[in-house]
Design a protein around this nucleic acid. Sequence first.
DNA 1: CGGCTAATTGATGTGCGTCAACGCTCGTGG
DNA 2: CCACGAGCGTTGACGCACATCAATTAGCCG
Lengths: 228, 228
Amino acid sequence: MSYCDTCVVRNRAICAALDTNELEALNKIGRRRMLEPGDSLIWEGDDSVLVANVIDGVLKLSTGTEDGREQIVGVVYPADFIGRPFGSTTRHSVTALTEATVCVFARGDFDNFAAEHPGLEHKLLQRTLAELDRTRRWMLLLGRKNAEEKIATFLMDMVERLGKPEDGDREVTIALPFSRQQVADVLGLTIETVSRQFTKLKKEGVIDLPSRREVVILNRTALEDRAG
Amino acid sequence: MSYCDTCVVRNRAICAALDTNELEALNKIGRRRMLEPGDSLIWEGDDSVLVANVIDGVLKLSTGTEDGREQIVGVVYPADFIGRPFGSTTRHSVTALTEATVCVFARGDFDNFAAEHPGLEHKLLQRTLAELDRTRRWMLLLGRKNAEEKIATFLMDMVERLGKPEDGDREVTIALPFSRQQVADVLGLTIETVSRQFTKLKKEGVIDLPSRREVVILNRTALEDRAG
DNA sequence: CGGCTAATTGATGTGCGTCAACGCTCGTGG
DNA sequence: CCACGAGCGTTGACGCACATCAATTAGCCG
């Protein structure tokens, strides 16, 4: 009996490429780990010793300059893959934003396992290609969009990732996994600018802000218009 | 006798994973194509019908907003891979910056071939992971660095990619494959700001600008200091 | 030499950062 | 149960880095 049998991301994570026997073998080299918000799994510049699948929760990938400026370079959700296989060092930290559960592997073990299971590598390749596409589209936001467009695009992205499919075009409430500072670090802005843009959208009736961590999207079309 | 036998990137591109027979088969489904500066191989939003290896030259990957702002999201060099396998649409244009030669494949053909050659997929995975790392580091530049730091980082990157290894720490001349506008599109700046930063570095004796497309790095340490 | 485009340089404007004060929320302990 | 404090978020006043607009110059090809 393995953890994998009851894993909620069994069919969505890269593990979906494996049959029962292979999964048994993978299970032997992995272990579960719980993280509290703020806990880091990997530090920037570390030797790449761990890789993992996200089972539950949201985590950020981030880098910074020596003088303390930070940029969040990726956000991972359940079924996403974390870490740098086939490489010596990790170029960004991985930190939990919410309570999270991950399925970790020693990188060496995982590399060896992957080398013998092309199906797994194929899934990982697909995931990596999709992530690269997503990351590149975010570059357009960072390089060329103004604060209003950044916030609007960010909120649209949140709806896409956290909204339920049945929501259709109705109003949606999002539970943000980010503090204001973290939103700023995703968008390349300051906390004050983020705050001002939020209240501006609220005054214009596009969103509502019932609490610090909640955003209600009242008018999705208006948001799209502002996303640039 | 196949093209591949004389291919200058034979041992550096993902094809390095293949033996002679396999290469023969790959050669059958690919063909060479020459591009002039400005020629596009793939357009943003197109169905993903082509993938390719770069044999010679430099190409840009770019996206833009509806109102014409552009962001260069990647630059590819000889031996790099272009295009989106295993996916339906392409999210960015691919355009030659210099004269270029590429080895193109119909995406469907390539997908099928790759599925039967795990070694090839492994190379592609490694390349994609490295590119994702590189892209994410560029996000720090776009989101958090000021104009001076952006230009310095850009020039350091150019030295790394275009400089010869034997240069050591001596002064290096770089033949930029970019116009000023394209430099601006890489860095998320305007052409005027790029120009002013270049002349500022020149006045300070860090670089020299013998012609429009050439930059001489006179003081690499000073450049590093400015890269943030 | 003339004409065309790219690049530079200058003058002015503004969006967002910076600095500072204030307010809200929630947890803790008297 | 309320007082208090600590942290996060909001709001305001101000300044600056970079964008914008405009004019000039440099490089390049006939």
